[in-house]
Amino acid sequence: MKDTGKNIIIAGVGGQGILLFSNLLSKFYMKLGYELKISDVIGLGQRGGGVESHFRYSTNPVLSPFIKAGDVDYLISFEQTETLRFLHCLKEDGIIFTSTYELTSTSVNTGLQKAMPGSKTEMILAADSTKYIINPDEHKSTEFDISKMMNIVMLGYYAEFRGYAHDDMIQVVRENVPAKFVEANLKAYQKGVSIACVEFASKESKVCVC
């Protein structure tokens, strides 16, 4: 294994399928023979709180369930405020994968805190790190509901970015989502792959294999 491991923060809000995303990824890395440690900070996710998963895979045993500050390789986020919350954890050469989806915090809705002025997307764009941004509104499909399956879209996107064998990842998806939803999930996965292909072709930063 050339890749000796990565530290990933997966972030978003309750109901976005972050735990499924982290679960699928863990099954994939286990099959590759990596050691894993995953810390799910659910907070009170289903009651409007944030969800944060510290995901670590390595060829060596993983010790701390926490990733040290400044030691995050990838930040994969499904909500823009959450992306901004974890930007500071990234390594110098860390990479951001984020959706432009936005859910206003209850603390703002109830007037406990002021709303952030300006565009969050622009704040993310201003970060020094390499970033890959997906706007779900630009990728709506009649075959699946992207507002519910952004997690699987992101999985396809991430797998393409990493150059992983899609057959293996798809197998993990098949084995771990309810039978009824497999087809829609595979469509979402393919969507993620094709968004990535277009993105990487235009940036010429990655060689597309699809």
Binding site: G43, G48, G50, T81, L87, H88, T106, Q113
Partner: peptide
């Protein structure tokens, strides 16, 4: 590491 922007709103449960 960079600091977290102060502007990022908390997300308390509700």
């Amino acid at each position: 590491s960079m600091e977290m922007p102060e502007i990022v709103a908390n997300r308390p449960p509700s």
